[in-house]
Simulated scan of single mutants.
Amino acid sequence: MIHANTDETWLPLYEALASPVRLSIINLLAADMMNVKELAESIGLSSAIVTMHIRKLEKAGLVQTKMVRKQGGTHKICSLAERSISIELPHMLDVKKVHEVSVPVGHFTEFEVFPTCGIATAEKMIGQFDDPRFFLEPERMNAGILWFGKGYVEYKVPNYLLSGQRPLALEITMELGSEAPGVNENWPSDIDFSLNGMDIGMWTSPGDYGEVRGRFSPAWWQDRINQYGLLKVIRIQEDGTFIDGQQMSVVGIGEIGLDRNFWSFRIGVKENAVHVGGLTLYGKGFGNYNHDIIFRVFYEDVRST
């Protein structure tokens, strides 16, 4: 599922949907995978024009393509990349009072990771594949992607709430996927989240996505390796903790100790999980969303009596 909002970065998605031809292509691909020639014949347009529409749908993350040998030739096969789209409009809380902090994925303060693993900036790999020592390399602070087979990374987030500001909800937004040797879109992984030492829930990632290049993958980033993840929004509020609107736990905003100077957020895959499928965390310069881990705390002013 694509989780979009009113940020301008989603304009390519909305532009891709604002076309009767592209909507027809989506409907055709919902029934079966097709090549460009088959799509052109079904719609009654030239292959060149259909190719232009496919590129816009690819840029929006709605369609994926791959080259397949078939009937003695090579064909560009098109298929849907997503099953649904969720558009989140601004909440009442969003347009009121909020403190926001963006934390780069390389700014972890504690970690324990096991191969397969790696870390990279938008310009180059940091060290070598499958060597956890490079997670201590100072250049990690510029990292835009990291991955590991099991273990965790932990981030310290400054608390900018002032005296008299009562937290109503905390949102954590990030792009996540599994970590398979190579890539495997059917590679479930149980990813755990904790805040200030308290478990707030678990989400099972469906797979490690790499068949199609990520929208923001650097030019040097090779194919057939982690390309993009799924955008996940964790929201901790009074009545529990939710991920994409689905409840993960009953842990509420009043139970996680937001009155300290900083918060500790840990994300990982436990060795005793049912699905030990690793974790890939995408930040700015990688994946499909081009942003780091975003923390938003919504609050209200409380007058002293």
Rank of each mutant, 00 (worst) to 15 (best):
E100S: 13
R69N: 12
Q247G: 01
M92Y: 15
V274G: 08
T305D: 14
N159L: 03
S189A: 02
S217I: 10
V212P: 01
P181V: 13
P20I: 05
K37R: 14
N288F: 01
E271H: 13
N142L: 10
G229Y: 06
T9H: 14
Y299F: 10
V274N: 12
A169N: 08
M125N: 02
E8K: 15
S24V: 10
F265I: 01
S79I: 05
F265H: 05
Q222D: 11
V212F: 10
N35G: 00
L17A: 09
S19E: 08
N27A: 15
E238W: 09
G106S: 07
D199F: 09
A81W: 00
T6Q: 14
P218Y: 00
G214K: 01
L13E: 06
G127P: 04
R133C: 07
F298V: 07
D239C: 11
E300R: 13
A18F: 09
N288S: 05
D130F: 09
H75G: 06
K76T: 07
S264G: 11
E58Y: 05
E154S: 12
G214T: 04
R224G: 06
K76L: 13
E8W: 15
L146N: 00
E110M: 10
I294T: 04
T9R: 15
T6M: 15
D32V: 13
E171H: 11
K70G: 11
G240P: 07
M34P: 06
R22H: 01
V103D: 05
A180I: 05
D192H: 12
S178Y: 11
S249G: 00
H107D: 13
G207W: 03
A120W: 09
L57Y: 02
P188M: 07
F108E: 00
L170I: 01
F298M: 01
D223L: 11
L281F: 07
E185W: 07
Q227N: 09
E179N: 14
E300M: 04
L62F: 00
N226V: 08
H91M: 15
K70M: 13
F135V: 02
Q128L: 13
R215Q: 07
